[in-house]
Design a protein around this nucleic acid. Structure first.
Lengths: 196, 196
DNA sequence: TGGCCTCCATACGGTGCCGTACGGTCCTCA
DNA sequence: TGAGGACCGTACGGCACCGTATGGAGGCCA
């Protein structure tokens, strides 16, 4: 676990480890001396590469932002928009993506360093999903609504998977659950009898 | 803001303030000396009512758990299950419930003090929603699936409202969005044309 | 080989918080 | 009115972490 290092460290090494810690212990876990210990180094190394602790936090956040961007572009290799959505949903619903970083950041969404990054990532994702819905044939307003609904479902799924994974085990094993999610999002509304 | 206090403090006063701080700064924000300052007191008072910091955290969590229980029983005054669900969804979707406590806890779901509380609350809520779906007429498996989906949408909605509220402003102002959410959940699936 | 520059360890002072010790105040009740 | 207990302030030691100062090891090049 980083104890047996013999080479020198780069700023990227610190940023990468900080991102790992962010996923494990949240934003507050990014502390210089503990991470130095994980890397088998001391603060002396850190303060040569970075000005202060804040710089490390920002580096980890920047790293995460570009990871999320990579995931989006990787999803683009599926040309058919409907298939792309199904694939996206499947990856989310059945994926073992216990994305700790996501959780850690959502918990500190009000932090002045986190907020802008989280805003950009959220905007980017929503726009991507909305565009995909639009490519299927929904008009702009409907596409945006469905994108928002889909994204909230995604966020909640990640959360639930991290707080009570066993509550999720049964539905995730059932193919009907996946169809329930997809059907509600991908098909046009037909107005059903309801009051008011 | 608690500065001009002249009466004595009770353990409940400390727990209540700790719960507020939990919503503002997250779990790590629950610190004895800062909260003492907010209450216009000192640690001397705190350590009379509590054994240590952990006890304060647990008290705040217990308080939150019973608040959530109160919300559930309040929802029970609506007898018709379908109406009850619509009302529940409406409160979530349109409600200005920027529930900071919820966010703060989800961000520390792995904490040994938080985990069991969060598990119980999640279980309780899922069971309640599933029972309501069952009362509408869904069989147990379907009811549970819809409850899980609805709850993930709720969690995600809360998250999104706290990270990028303006992305949510348009849909929430549109009554069609609410119908989209409800329709996908409350109506039986009809299998639609999709591949595979 | 010797000087320079890069990278890092060690040592130090400073800060915010925890928990304890102890003394003081006010309220209660006989 | 005085004794005892409930409640709280102050002072202290300890810990974890931040950031700085300084010197030393090792590569690069004349």
């Amino acid at each position: 676990m980083g104890v047996g290092r013999d080479t020198r460290l780069s700023a990227d090494d610190w940023a990468a480890e900080a991102l790992v810690v962010l996923g494990e212990k949240g934003l507050g876990g990014i502390a210089v001396e503990p991470i130095a210990a994980r890397l088998g180094a001391t603060k002396g190394s850190f303060y040569w590469h970075f000005a202060n602790r804040d710089a490390l936090v920002e580096a980890a956040l920047a790293r995460w932002e570009q990871v999320t961007e990579g995931i989006i572009t990787a999803m683009d290799e599926e040309p058919d928009p409907q298939q792309r959505l199904r694939r996206l949903f499947r990856q989310v619903v059945t994926g073992a993506t216990s994305n700790g970083v996501e959780i850690g950041l959502l918990g500190n969404a009000d932090d002045p360093r986190v907020a802008p990054v989280l805003r950009r990532v959220t905007q980017r994702r929503l726009r991507y999903v909305a565009d995909t819905f639009a490519a299927i044939g929904f008009d702009e307003r409907a596409a945006r609504q469905r994108a928002v609904l889909a994204y909230t479902a995604y966020l909640g799924h990640v959360q639930l998977a991290s707080t009570a994974p066993d509550e999720l085990a049964d539905p995730m094993a059932d193919p009907d659950y996946f169809e329930l999610v997809v059907n509600g999002l991908i098909h046009p509304v037909r107005h059903a009898p309801h009051d008011r």
